[in-house]
Design a protein around this nucleic acid. Structure first.
Lengths: 218, 218
DNA sequence: GACGGATTGGACAATTGTGTCCAAAATATT
DNA sequence: AATATTTTGGACACAATTGTCCAATCCGTC
């Protein structure tokens, strides 16, 4: 615990020299866990992918259960942060509602939903949620538990400002997210990597339908 | 200690005596595979749940890979059949479009999307699709590959009959399915078992929004 | 250059799981 | 009742994995 050199650390650089490998391990573990599931992921495979000896993993992160917990909780943080960073760009007083909402939606798709972190996370939670109940709880709290209400609040704001006609902002939020994610989810399911160019189209399609349903009629 | 319940199996009585245990094995395997993933599912666990000796599984279905393939392909068939059975009740010439479409949607939710078969299948394919490419292909073909176009055709029919305004029936089909499945998917993700009573509400919400967007204006 | 903590790789026991073999028992067929 | 088939459970070899121990080695710091 000699952090005498900790003063020199910049933002997210590696404070102890260890942090370097720690990150490599966590990234590798995220990949392997997501690809193979908890049972199928071997420590050896993770070590190999991280370019690190197996022992180092045990030194830094303890046993497999704990490694998994740390991975999920780190990715949860990152993913949540990314989402809210994009949500901050939600159009408040749009000139051209459809255009601006579509642009925002595209960003949300790119940076939050399509993002590898979020995908790994969803898959891991779905697959292993039953095995780690407490992990599942915190994911629920920081994932859907915060995101949907936040989107609902933004939509309610737009409604209050006269842009939308909403009976139920929470429902509208769920439906908006659903419309936004369909094609992406479909592509992911059929194993097709969505070309960058289609993301704008998806956002535009979702926005158009959403506004056909909820834009305030003039 | 053998269970002397030859007469007790009224459940899914099958004519060849073998078929009986075979079905028990396949059902148990579906459960365990879905819950534990391919790697995490042990033959012993499957045998125990099926109430069958491990050896019988090897006798009837060969090794683990083959067992998995058979399970997925059987469930694919069942799930697909269920879906199209419901799709046949799609309203052709509705008197009250919203009411009839909502009723149909509720049936689709109940019998096809919420159905255990379909859920296991989606999860298995998502988790293990990479491990069994050829299985993944047939699932794609018989799953999304047939279902979405079928729904699109029904919607196009309604549009042609003057009930809807659709630019792109295929897109509308994806969006309709997305709206329909959101809340259910959300519940599944957060581990909440959707009460029967809410299914009608989900169908009604989805239908209402869909029609707000696409019902032909009078 | 020497020190100390981190890292490595290899060996290890314990556990778990796969797939096979076989003889005894249960079950079905005639 | 006699016979054919399936099922059973236990034993087995084999492979993979986990988690630990330890001596050798690397690397930055003093």
């Amino acid at each position: 615990m000699k952090n005498s050199s900790a003063e020199l650390t910049h933002e997210y650089d590696t404070w102890p020299p260890a942090q370097n490998k720690r990150q490599a391990i966590l990234n590798a573990a995220a990949d392997v866990f997501a690809q193979e599931g908890f049972a199928g992921a071997s420590i050896d495979a993770i070590a190999a992918r991280a370019g690190v000896s197996r022992q180092t993993i045990y030194n830094q992160l303890g046993d497999k259960d704990n490694l998994f917990k740390v991975v999920v909780s780190e990715i949860t943080d990152r993913s949540s942060a990314g989402f809210f960073r994009v949500l901050d760009t939600f159009p408040d007083r749009p000139q051209d509602l459809e255009r601006e909402l579509a642009a925002f939606s595209a960003q949300l798709l790119r940076k939050a939903i399509c993002d590898p972190n979020g995908r790994w996370l969803r898959k891991l939670v779905e697959t292993e949620g039953a095995r780690f109940p407490e992990l599942f709880e915190t994911w629920k709290e920081y994932g859907p538990g915060k995101k949907y209400p936040a989107v609902a609040a933004r939509l309610a704001q737009l409604a209050h400002a006269g842009y939308l006609d909403l009976d139920d902002p929470a429902l509208a939020a769920r439906q908006y997210m659903a419309l936004l994610a369909t094609d992406l989810r479909y592509d992911q399911q059929i194993g097709r990597q969505t070309p960058e160019s289609e993301i704008d189209r998806m956002a535009a399609d979702a926005t158009k339908t959403f506004l056909r349903a909820f834009a305030r009629k003039l």
